[in-house]
């Protein structure tokens, strides 16, 4: 049974990969990707049940933080019922999203800004080396160059130093990292295609 799963996975992966390069195979590739999208949709339902199961377990065992689990489950069920009754395009449903989910995510984003500033301050204590100094100095320099200062912008910083850092150093470094990531992605994909890595279970 496991061998069949491996053969199916490898064959499907190969078909999708070759579909990118040989146009005659593109319709088959498109069909397989559509199946994958449908499966992902079904997986979302399973994932929601997993979420309910995990938090219901926490509530029933009266674990630490079970109150938050109860709030989560009540909100989840209420949103599901309202969503099914009213539909996702209803103005009340949109109000629910815009007045709860969007502000909560924006709050987390604001919290993130504080977290990053605090982490940057502590960076030199955690990892006192040349790269940390370069990292912090670059971040500070670019912030000062981009910020609107009370006495106006600092000409050479904004007109010369910032573009030079952004377009020469940062862009070059980013491309180097992305090439490394692309090569890593390619090799990981090939290992999965050869069946050496099996993220779909099996010993």
């Amino acid at each position: 049974m496991r061998a069949i799963a491996v053969v199916l996975a490898v064959a499907t992966g190969l078909l999708v990969l070759i579909g990118y390069f040989i146009p005659t195979l593109a319709p088959i590739q498109s069909m397989i990707l559509n199946w994958a999208i449908i499966l992902s949709g079904a997986a979302a339902l399973v994932g929601v049940f997993n979420l309910i199961w995990v938090h219901w377990g926490k509530i029933s065992r009266r674990e630490k933080g079970s109150l938050y689990s109860a709030i989560l489950l009540i909100c989840l069920i209420a949103t599901l019922i309202f969503g099914m009754l009213l539909g996702p395009d209803d103005s009340n449903m949109r109000l629910l999203v815009n007045s709860i989910i969007v502000p909560v995510e924006a709050t987390l984003m604001a919290l993130l800004a504080v977290t990053l500033v605090y982490a940057s301050i502590r960076l030199l204590r955690r990892r006192a080396n040349l790269m940390s100094v370069v990292f912090l100095a670059t971040a500070l320099l670019l912030l000062i160059a981009s910020a609107t200062l009370p006495f106006g912008e600092i000409g050479p910083l904004n007109n010369f130093v910032r573009p030079w850092f952004q377009h020469a150093w940062a862009l070059g470094g980013a491309r180097g990292i992305l090439i490394g990531v692309a090569l890593g992605t390619l090799m990981t994909g090939l290992r999965v295609l050869f069946g050496a890595d099996r993220p779909y279970g099996g010993k």
């Binding site: 977290t115 990053l116 982490a119 960076l123 990892r127 990292f135 490394g180 890593g184 090799m187």
Partner: peptide, 20 residues
């Protein structure tokens, strides 16, 4: 994310180290 992790995590892997 790599930049954020470099600043905030005790240990961060950069670039292709993730795949190693």
């Amino acid at each position: 994310s790599q930049a954020a992790l470099y600043a905030s995590a005790p240990e961060a892997l950069i670039g292709e180290e993730l795949f190693a």
